[in-house]
């Protein structure tokens, strides 16, 4: 069983075998548009398109997508709301609403609100773009793509090892926790704390041993400092790439238009 639902979806969706180049391009374009325009309208269009592509092409339902989206969105909201609220002076212009707490005068100004909306738009849009990539593309395809783009090897090696050994670590921790549970290690609060501490320290030692044995095994296969693996050539279709770029450009033009002439 796969303990990570996002990983499971990445391997099981209908866009799994689509060229990573195209998916990365689509996701990167979406993020760029949202960050570039910082406009709620543009973000709304992007998120709608991402949701539609996930639903129609990848077979990932809206409910699933938003299920993955709501938790990080919570973080964004808790960050954005305080941003909109600020301390007001006697002469602060454009106050939309305010409240006096003791000697403090707190309120929302139109400038602050616009700023908060811009942050919300760019971060929420980037989040949905990134999540699109995470849901449709397994890590192996993403690291391959990064290799093709000559991202530093050390960075990719770390990504690969962290990904692989997250699962090993999780399995080890799970087995240890079960072993503690069956011996009543979590039956009281006091024992719970003790067991968790033991688990953590043991897990650290295990990881060290795991690292040593990995190094040994890699050495036996000729490891000399670089984790080189074969990367398949990326098959991408010019038509689809042009289509993706076309959609992004259209959204871009529309975004510029709304900004310049105030269309919504």
């Amino acid at each position: 069983m796969n303990p990570f639902p996002i990983d499971a979806v990445a391997y099981g969706n209908r866009l799994r075998s689509a060229p990573a180049t195209e998916k990365v391009l689509f996701a990167a374009g979406a993020v760029a548009l949202c960050v570039g325009f910082r406009s709620l309208a543009v973000t709304a269009v992007v998120v709608t398109i991402v949701t539609a592509v996930l639903r129609l092409r990848a077979g990932i339902g809206m409910r699933d997508f938003w299920g993955f989206l709501w938790l990080p969105s919570g973080f964004i909201l808790t960050g954005v709301v305080p941003m909109a609220i600020e301390f007001l002076g006697p002469q602060t212009p454009g106050v939309l609403a305010s409240v006096h707490i003791g000697s403090w005068h707190l309120g929302v100004t139109s400038r602050g609100l616009t700023q908060a909306m811009a942050i919300l738009a760019s971060s929420f849009g980037s989040l949905s773009g990134t999540l699109f990539l995470a849901l449709t593309t397994p890590i192996v395809d993403i690291t391959d793509q990064l290799r093709r783009w000559y991202v530093p090897v050390l960075f990719i090696d770390m990504m690969m090892l962290i990904y692989r050994f997250t699962f090993v670590l999780l399995a080890t921790a799970g087995a240890m926790k079960t072993a503690q549970e069956v011996r009543l290690g979590y039956s009281t609060n006091r024992l719970w704390l003790r067991s968790v501490a033991m688990l953590a320290s043991n897990l650290y030692l295990r990881s060290q041993m795991r690292a040593v044995s990995l190094f040994t095994a890699l050495s036996c296969r000729g490891y000399s400092g670089e984790l080189r693996v074969l990367v398949d050539r990326a098959p991408w279709s010019a038509t689809r790439v042009l289509g993706i770029i076309g959609v992004h450009v259209l959204i871009g033009i529309w975004g510029v238009a709304t900004r310049t002439w105030g269309w919504v």
């Binding site: 397994p138 690969m160 692989r164 984790l227 693996v229």
Partner: peptide, 15 residues
């Protein structure tokens, strides 16, 4: 588990 490190089987074998 101490021998396999790559993100896919084929990549691991190519190492």
């Amino acid at each position: 588990d101490s021998q396999l490190f790559a993100s896919s089987v084929r990549q691991d074998i190519s190492f």
